[in-house]
Amino acid sequence: MPAVEAVKFPKAVLFDLDGTLLDSAPDMVAAIDAMRAERGQPPMPLEALRPHVSKGARAMVAAAFPDVAEDERERWIPEFLDCYQRALGQYGVPFDGIEAMLAALENAGCAWGIVTNKPEYLARQLMPVLGWEHRCAVLIGGDTLKARKPDPLPLIVAAERIGVAPEQCVYVGDDERDIVAARAAGMPSVVALWGYRLDEDDPIAWQGDAMIDLPSQLIAAEAWPGTR
């Protein structure tokens, strides 16, 4: 009888940041509230902004100021980023179970990194706040390369920098563009159902290789989709 091969973690795992590793919505709403206060408007409820966080700065500003013309909102993006930088890491924390899951990967010898559409300078400022600056093997932001997700280039480059082939790496994200990028990169994917989604989002339709409800489930090697 042939020996049964032991279930192993992937050689490397790449993660989205906001809505996947980090519950950053409280920092984001602090930035939005600063902008609203400047314009004489009341604070925005956290739960009203939370579903938009993974869609990026423009989506959050649009949700906070729906009656403002798009071209004017576009001019407010630098202001939002400045406000967010001041709130960075003050209120946001890793989702429950993330630290234990990262420790399980590390204990198994699995390298992990971050590919986010957040500007790289903001993502890097978060690393020491979270205690990840010496643990995260690679960090690529939305402005690091000439393309960002859903383009596969950031995932491909991240895998190269870790030193593994894309098909030996898994990407974890909570937004459709994460799964689209992974598929285009030839990289197995995990849909993080604990993240941020709009009501109209249908994560089943994204066709990720696995759908996981909680980070704690990824402590088990068998929860990860197979890599080649």
Rank of each mutant, 00 (worst) to 15 (best):
P42D: 08
L126W: 06
A87F: 04
W76V: 00
I77C: 02
N107L: 07
A104H: 03
P43S: 11
A123N: 09
T116E: 05
A59P: 14
E99K: 09
G92M: 10
A111P: 10
C110F: 04
R58E: 14
Q41F: 03
F80I: 03
W112I: 02
K118N: 13
L102N: 10
L49W: 08
P66K: 00
D96S: 14
Q90I: 00
A62F: 00
K55C: 05
A62E: 15
P78S: 02
A57W: 04
A63L: 00
E120P: 11
P78V: 00
P43Y: 06
A69W: 03
I32Q: 12
P66W: 01
Q125M: 14
A63S: 04
C83N: 15
Q85P: 00
R39K: 13
R58S: 13
I32V: 15
W76S: 05
A100C: 07
G109T: 11
H52D: 05
A100S: 14
F80E: 03
P42R: 03
C110N: 11
A62N: 06
G113I: 08
D82I: 14
A63W: 00
G56N: 04
L88M: 12
K118E: 10
S54I: 09
P51C: 08
P78M: 01
P66V: 00
P45R: 08
A34S: 14
D33R: 09
V53Y: 06
R36A: 04
E99V: 11
Q90C: 10
L88N: 14
P43D: 13
A123E: 03
K55G: 12
P42K: 03
L49Y: 09
Y121T: 13
N117F: 02
F95A: 10
Q125C: 13
L49C: 09
R73A: 02
A123T: 15
P66D: 01
I77T: 06
M35W: 09
E120H: 15
Q85S: 15
W76I: 01
P43A: 11
L122K: 00
A34I: 04
Q90P: 12
A31K: 10
G109S: 09
L102Q: 08
R124P: 09
M127W: 12
Q41T: 02
L88K: 11
I32N: 11
L81G: 06
G109Y: 04
G113L: 07
M35Q: 14
L126A: 08
E74G: 02
F65S: 05
E74N: 13
A34V: 12
V53A: 06
R75Y: 01
Y84K: 10
K118F: 07
Q90V: 05
A87Q: 15
L46R: 14
F95G: 11
R86P: 06
C110I: 04
M60A: 04
P66T: 01
E99C: 05
W112G: 03
F95L: 10
L81S: 07
V61H: 05
W112M: 03
K55M: 12
A64V: 01
M60Y: 04
C110H: 08
P42Q: 05
Y84E: 07
M35L: 15
M60H: 05
F80A: 04
G56K: 00
V68L: 14
P94M: 07
G113F: 07
R58Y: 07
D71G: 00
G92D: 12
K55V: 01
Q41D: 06
R58W: 04
V68S: 06
